[in-house]
Amino acid sequence: MRTRSLILTTAARGLLPLMIVFSVFLLFRGHNEPGGGFVGGLVASAAFALYGFANGVNQARARLHTQPNVLIGAGLLLAAASGLPSLLLGQPFMTGLWSAAQLPVVGKIGTPLFFDIGVYLLVLGVTTMIMFSLAEEAGA
């Protein structure tokens, strides 16, 4: 990764937000069209991979703004927590609760959506954790 081309660096810089937006789009449309948290998370991590490839791992870590393990923990927590509200209502774990409001792309807001967001965060955390530690180990 020593010979970073300027083009790649610049391209990655521009691509990162674009790909993130696309990944979020994939996440939200998943309930109705092919897509979902898993694929979305993968696209997002591909963006960070590309960024890290172009600008170095440290830069990529910085752009992530948080530690991968926090993403993993938060993702799992969100996914698990999305099932908890129904428990409070005396219904089984993971019983879907829905708001009446309708949003574009997403459709109705419900707990399964938060579950999918959890998946998205976790996948992002997992893949960045793997990539970063691989790259750091290679650099060490």
Binding site: Q67, N69, V70, L77, A80, L87, Q91, P92, F93
Partner: peptide, 24 residues
């Protein structure tokens, strides 16, 4: 009360999540 059945899975899961978040 059948919701009890989720606890043996959820309790260790939450413990694990807490441990992940308190990594160091």
């Amino acid at each position: 009360m059948a919701n009890l059945l989720f606890l043996p899975i959820l309790i260790p899961l939450l413990a694990a999540i807490a441990s992940v978040l308190l990594w160091q």
